[in-house]
Design a protein around this nucleic acid. Structure first.
Length: 515
RNA sequence: GGCCCUGUCGUCUAGAGGCCUAGGACACGGCCCUUUCAAGGCCGCGACACGGGUUCGAAUCCCGUCAGGGUCACCA
């Protein structure tokens, strides 16, 4: 039998990085076994739902290359894939449970429930809810419910245990006496999570339920529902949660905000975001995939990184291409301990993938950043494309993210360089620097042809004739030409700028130092 | 607090009783290369939570302790 897995997000915000990791494991498992991956939208909580949150989730998955076989927009044999459109199915199942004595109506008010809960808490006793009609006969319960609909609760069987055989965790046993009777259907017939998942997983013929470990404690309840409905149970695998860097807490949107470091902030500002946007926007939060997309991370790197969080191929492999991941993925090799998200390692991996990206793809990836900055127009000319290609080539391995093109290339597009105070102090105001620059500027005319190799040779000849180390000239020239201390190779820089612009910028720098 | 899960370098991980003087990767430190920054090369730092068993032999199996986490809704 072919395997079927699913990922079931609720549309409450941007795609969470931890959720993607779970979805990825589902997806890899199905690809490995040529199965079917279902995307189901769990939008039963009509109050919290944000319909506009759906598109970013779908976009996020598509960007990562995680395509679902059944679900929103693609549909499939078990449509609809939105729980909000399946209320009748849940109601039918719940009514059957009611008739067969596995569920009962509960007329207790929220106030009563809260009071009971508080009382139990005060008495330091665990609160395990058992409704008044728990032991009322099925026929009586049906009559009651038909007269006045109420919330329907599962009648958790007393005095036995529930065993879960989890691929990742092994055998987990829980006593039913520790589980309260959960509501499965509200009085208005909207289902609750624990109930809707079971009904849908069965309806959609899901064979492997692979989800985050935080759901492990829900599983016994769900198993009881499978039993009550006489449904076959799927195979369970609870993957460890993803922790926030440097802590042992689950990765959360609120806490991840602090990983917008000064460095990241600078990048986002360079892209064009205001401080206020950086602070408030969800898609600029490192807990969401959108954030990495905005910064120009390669999706392949993200997928690789996330797969390695809790799973490994062997004792060596870090960079694992998709084909190898698919060919080798196994739930049996997923760790049971939580893993911390490490932005440093992800950044490194992003660079590894960028290294092997063909130039034309780098061009396509970098272009939007320059366009958004107003440095290149909407329809770039061939010459603009050539120039950008030269910059990207010269940037080489420095380019790890597409947005890095702004770090290494922006100065070529500005009318004047933005002179950094620190760089000017250190390199231009140094004794003798101005004189050297003046002399070198006078020599510029001799460089022929004006290309990186020739500039290189001329600069070294110049230094040799004056008996100085090339570094003494290289540093001031770099700052004069770009305004910054770090950047791509100086000779490439000057070659791209051209003779006239180089000369102009040296004069500009000279003027700056004289003031 | 109840229930459940988890403990190998700071982090991700390898480890299925002898291949372990515990391997790799990121990060960090040093050196080399070098015009800066990257990249690359070499070297270094650095872990089996603790205590009992079982066994000729334990990171690995069992028990306990401790620590961390998840979850306890008419949220998902």
């Amino acid at each position: 039998m072919s395997i079927r897995t699913r990922f079931a997000p609720s549309p409450t915000g941007y795609l969470h990085i931890g959720g993607v990791r779970t979805a990825l494991f589902n997806w890899l498992l199905t690809k490995r076994h040529a199965g079917t991956f279902v995307l189901r939208i769990e939008d039963t909580d009509t109050e919290r739902n944000k319909p506009e949150a759906l598109q970013p989730i779908l976009d996020g998955f598509r960007w990562l290359g995680i395509q679902w076989d059944e679900g929103p927009e693609v549909n499939g044999p078990y449509a609809p894939y939105f729980q909000s459109q399946r209320f009748d199915t849940y109601k039918d199942a719940a009514l059957r449970m009611l008739a067969e004595g596995h569920a009962y109506p509960d007329y207790m008010t929220k106030e009563q429930l809260d009071a009971d809960r508080k009382a139990a808490e005060a008495a330091k006793k665990p609160y395990i809810h058992r409704g008044p009609h728990r032991d009322t006969s099925p026929a009586e319960c049906v009559k009651l419910y038909e007269a006045t609909p109420a919330a329907l609760r599962l009648k958790v069987p007393a005095g036995r245990s529930v065993v879960i055989d989890d691929i990742i965790r092994g055998r987990v046993e829980v006593q039913t006496d520790t589980i309260g009777d959960p509501v499965i259907l509200r009085a208005d017939s909207r289902p609750l999570y624990n109930f809707a998942v079971v009904v849908d997983d069965v309806a959609m013929k899901i064979t492997h339920v692979v989800r985050a470990a935080e759901h492990l404690s829900n599983t016994p309840t769900q198993v009881l529902i499978y039993e009550a409905l006489q449904y076959p149970q799927p195979t369970f695998a609870h993957v460890p949660v993803v922790n926030e860097p440097g802590s042992k807490k689950k990765l959360s949107k609120r806490d991840m905000k602090k990983f917008v470091t000064v460095d990241v902030k600078a990048k986002l500002r360079a892209i064009g975001y205001t401080d206020e946007q950086i602070e408030s926007r969800d898609d600029l939060n490192p807990a969401t995939v959108a954030f990495y997309r905005e910064l120009g991370y390669l999706p392949t790197a993200i997928v690789n990184y996330l797969a390695r969080l809790g799973w490994s191929l062997d004792d060596k492999a870090e960079k694992i291409d998709l084909a190898d991941m698919i060919a080798n993925f196994a739930l049996e090799r997923v760790n049971s301990a939580p893993a911390s998200f490490d932005p440093d390692k992800l950044y490194w991996l992003a660079g590894e993938y960028m290294k092997e990206l063909p130039l034309k793809d780098k061009l396509v990836g970098c272009l939007p950043y320059l366009q958004r900055a107003g440095m290149i127009g909407a329809t770039p000319s061939d010459e603009e494309k050539r120039k950008l290609a030269t910059i990207i080539t010269a940037a080489g391995d420095r380019l790890k993210l597409f947005s890095d093109v702004l770090t290494y290339g922006a100065s070529f597009y500005r009318a004047d360089p933005t002179y950094e105070t620190k760089a000017v102090e250190k390199r231009l105001k140094k004794a003798g620097a101005a004189d050297l620059l003046r002399a070198f500027a006078a020599d510029l005319a001799k460089v022929d042809p004006w290309d990186a190799a020739t500039v290189d040779r001329c600069l070294h000849d110049f230094c040799a004739s004056r008996n100085i180390k090339s570094a003494e000239l290289v540093h001031p020239v770099r700052v004069a030409a770009t305004g910054a201390e770090v950047g791509i190779g100086l000779f490439d820089t000057l070659a791209i700028l051209g003779r006239d612009e180089t000369a102009r910028r040296i004069q500009l720098a000279l003027k700056l130092v004289q003031i």
